[in-house]
Measured scan of single mutants.
Amino acid sequence: NTCEECGKPIGCDCKDLSYKDRHWHEACFHCSQCRNSLVDKPFAAKEDQLLCTDCYSNEY
């Protein structure tokens, strides 16, 4: 699979995080606004962007 954020392949030695058929490296899986990691945290998706709950609450 190819990472949505950096565009590089996700190798066998990396954790592949996925959501709705989109894939990310663990280090690339972060909020589109504040850039905080979303690994093991709740998040929301809006208009193809992933947002942490704080940024989502502030926007919507």
Rank of each mutant, 00 (worst) to 15 (best):
D13E: 12
L51Q: 09
N36Y: 06
R35N: 07
E59T: 10
C6I: 02
K46H: 12
D21T: 05
Y60N: 14
G7C: 11
T2Q: 13
S57Q: 12
C34N: 00
H30M: 15
Q49W: 06
F29M: 06
S32R: 05
S18T: 12
K8I: 12
D21E: 13
V39L: 06
K41G: 08
E4D: 15
D13R: 04
K20P: 00
I10W: 00
G11N: 05
E5I: 03
E26Y: 03
C14E: 14
D40G: 08
K15A: 08
D16F: 06
T2S: 08
N36Q: 14
D40N: 09
R35M: 07
L17V: 12
K8C: 04
F29Y: 09
C31T: 01
H30R: 11
Q33I: 05
E5L: 13
L38T: 04
D54M: 08
L50A: 04
C55E: 09
G7P: 00
L38K: 03
F29Q: 06
F29K: 03
T2V: 04
P9G: 04
C31D: 01
C12R: 13
E4F: 12
Q33P: 01
C31F: 02
E59K: 06
Y56L: 11
F29N: 04
D48R: 09
R35S: 09
A45G: 15
F43I: 15
L38H: 01
D16Y: 04
N36F: 08
P42G: 15
L17R: 13
H23T: 04
S37D: 07
Y19Q: 07
C12P: 12
D40I: 04
E26G: 09
T53P: 09
H30Q: 03
K15D: 05
Y19V: 11
S37G: 12
S37I: 05
C55M: 01
K46Y: 10
F43C: 14
C6E: 00
Y56N: 15
C52Y: 00
V39P: 05
K20D: 12
G11I: 02
R22N: 06
H30F: 13
F43D: 06
H25Y: 00
G7S: 03
Q49K: 15
C14I: 12
L51T: 07
V39K: 15
T53V: 07
K20S: 07
C34M: 00
Y60P: 15
F43H: 14
Y56Q: 15
N58H: 06
C28E: 04
L50Q: 06
N36A: 12
C31Y: 01
L17Q: 13
E47I: 06
K41A: 12
T2K: 10
N1R: 02
C14N: 13
Y56A: 13
F29I: 05
T2R: 09
A27H: 05
S57T: 10
G11D: 08
A45N: 07
L38G: 02
C34R: 01
A27T: 07
P9V: 01
D54I: 14
Q49P: 07
C31H: 00
C12D: 14
S18A: 09
E59V: 11
Q33E: 13
A27L: 11
C52N: 05
G11F: 03
E4A: 13
P9Q: 06
C28Q: 02
D13M: 06
C52F: 00
E4I: 08
H30V: 12
H23C: 04
E47S: 09
E59G: 14
D13G: 11
F29S: 06
C3M: 01
D13W: 04
N1Y: 09
C12S: 13
K8M: 07
E4G: 06
N58F: 10
L51C: 13
N58T: 14
S18K: 04
Q49H: 12
E5F: 15
W24M: 04
N1C: 03
Y60W: 10
K8R: 08
R22P: 02
D21F: 02
C55W: 00
E26L: 02
W24E: 06
D21Q: 12
K41F: 06
L51M: 14
L38R: 02
G11V: 02
Y60M: 02
Q33C: 00
H30W: 11
K20L: 06
C55P: 04
N36C: 09
D16V: 05
C28G: 01
C12G: 14
T2A: 02
C31V: 02
P9I: 02
A44L: 05
W24C: 03
C12E: 13
C6Y: 00
R35W: 10
N36M: 11
I10L: 05
R35Y: 07
L38S: 04
Q49M: 12
V39H: 12
E59S: 11
E47M: 07
P9A: 08
C34G: 01
I10F: 02
T2H: 14
L50S: 03
C34L: 01
Q33N: 10
L17E: 15
F43R: 14
S18G: 06
P9K: 04
H23V: 05
E4C: 13
D21Y: 02
E47R: 08
Q33M: 08
L38W: 00
F29W: 09
C14A: 15
Y60I: 10
K15C: 03
L38N: 04
C3Q: 01
